[in-house]
Nucleic acid binder design. Structure first.
Length: 432
RNA sequence: GCGGUUAUAGUUCAGCGGCAGAACGCCUGACUGUGGCUCAGGAUGUCGAGGGUUCGAUCCCCUCUAACCGCCCCA
């Protein structure tokens, strides 16, 4: 019988790596707070219809990657409900926006989330079936300014700030506009028309894409196809005046703020709800999964879900990919194991209870304490202490009677006698 | 979902159709209340799982599972 393991595409996160996850999340919360975002937590599963309508029936995510099941009916007469583990979080946030009438405040809603998402894809490095996204949405009624290109620019500037504060170096912001849904439709037709005479010279994948999703042809990496792709129409030419004006305002604001970006007119994103601005922050160290985060504007999503008009813009960061990138940059050396301030070594099992009392005192004073075990020989206590703490406190009969404790610092090698009343202050001083 | 590579000790990895190996880590002692350095000794394990070929399989064959790489797609 084989032992049980974490299922395919899922994994355990262990210390010390979890410390990095916590640092990333703390930094994100800090940055979001400065931009006046509040946290939203939506359910991990939702009615399947939310994703079918919100993300799009024809997308890969909905058509083949969702974890969906029929919920048990409570009564014979009741119909079962189709539920799905969320494959992304924007649809859930917009559902909550509609459900709670958040638009009625007349204010812009600025919401962020951190949490697991689920897609049944073939796992690879940087791609898991349960993965974590850090995302945010700016959404509200047009009267709150939700359509303004300033919102796009602010979100992008915030992301640049976040990546910089996380210490991610070498990222690239790729930017495009896919226009309104009408613009997109017009472009699709132009693209199909332009492909007809040339598609037979292209790779088999492109021949298939030309049928199923012409926009995807732009993503082709086959070298021989590139000259053909170069001559295909560009989406910018299909944008209406409003969309052009919007995009020009976004780039102008980014220029003013000094946020570097690259225009990529081939950047088309896979979710149906995107309109106008779309973007991706990429990083070279991630291999085939080079997108650190992706996002864009979704002016029609609320209405697609039966809500009021509520334009918005948002993004999702692949937290797993952030961790991979930082781990690669840190080069393992800058991952110091977490060590306690002090290790308390009781001498003999008779000292165990007294050691707990001492540990309690010190912990209540804010110190990180590792509590040893009296049956250990002192040598063994030292060995354990050296791996888990900066210093060791010896608690034997002598120390208990006299109230003068023996402390040894591992980095300096200095051993000291410290009165119990001064112990907490002494231990807190890194140089002792 | 498709193609390729891989799977041996806690970890990183050698290995061979005939007793399962190294390094690091771990445990014990030298050192009875003093770690790191050193020395001596010890345990590492269903050789990913299941089946087949063979006198004999960790090794060859098949199936499965998983990781990694590429495709698809995406965070």
């Amino acid at each position: 019988m084989s032992t049980l393991k974490a299922v395919r595409g899922t994994r355990d996160l262990l210390p010390p790596e979890t410390a990095l996850w916590n640092r990333i999340e703390a930094t994100a919360r800090d940055v979001f707070a400065r931009y006046n975002f509040g946290e939203i937590r939506t359910p991990v599963f939702e009615d399947t219809g939310l994703f079918a309508r919100g993300v799009g029936e024809e997308t890969d995510i909905v058509s083949k990657e969702m974890y969906t099941w029929e919920d048990r009916a409570r009564a014979q007469s009741e119909k079962t409900q189709s539920l799905t583990l969320r494959p992304e979080n924007t649809a859930g946030v917009v559902r909550a926006y509609i459900e709670h009438g958040l638009g009625e405040s007349g204010l812009l809603q600025k919401l962020y989330y951190i949490g697991p998402q689920f897609r049944r894809e073939r796992p690879q490095k940087g791609r898991y079936r349960q993965f974590s996204q850090i995302g945010a949405e700016v959404i509200g009624p047009p009267s709150a300014g939700s359509e303004s290109p300033l919102r796009d620019a602010e979100v992008l500037e915030m992301l640049a700030t976040l990546l910089d504060e996380l210490g991610i170096t070498g990222w690239t912001l790729e930017l495009n506009s896919v226009g309104s849904s009408a613009d997109r439709e017009r472009y699709n037709q132009a693209l199909r028309a332009a492909l007809v005479p040339v598609v037979s010279q292209m790779c088999p994948d492109c021949q298939r894409r030309a049928e199923t999703n012409p926009l995807r042809v732009l993503d082709c990496k086959v070298a021989a196809d590139q000259p053909i792709i170069e001559r295909l129409p560009v989406i910018a030419d299909s944008l209406d005046e409003e969309s052009k004006k919007h995009f020009a305002a976004v780039t102008a604001a980014l220029d003013a703020a000094g946020v570097p970006y690259t225009l990529n007119h081939r950047l088309v994103r896979g979710l149906d709800y995107y309109t106008r601005t779309t973007f991706e922050f990429t990083h070279g160290g991630l291999g085939a999964q080079n997108a650190l985060l992706g996002g864009g504007r979704y002016d029609g999503l609320s209405e697609m879900l039966g809500g009021p008009r509520a334009p918005g813009i948002g993004f999702a960061i692949g937290e797993d990919r952030l961790v991979l990138t930082l781990l690669a940059q840190l080069d393992q050396k800058a991952a110091p194991p977490q060590v306690a301030d002090a290790f308390i070594a009781p001498l003999g099992e008779g000292m165990n209870a007294a050691a707990l009392v001492l540990a309690r005192e010190l912990r209540h004073q804010g110190l990180w304490i590792e509590l040893g075990e009296g049956s250990f020989r002192l040598k063994k206590s030292f060995e354990a202490a050296d791996k888990t703490a900066r210093q060791i406190v010896i608690l034997g009969e002598d120390e208990l009677q006299s109230g003068i404790l023996t402390v040894k610092n591992f980095s300096t090698g200095i051993q000291s006698k410290v009165p119990r009343g001064e112990l907490a202050v002494f231990l807190a001083e890194p140089a002792n």
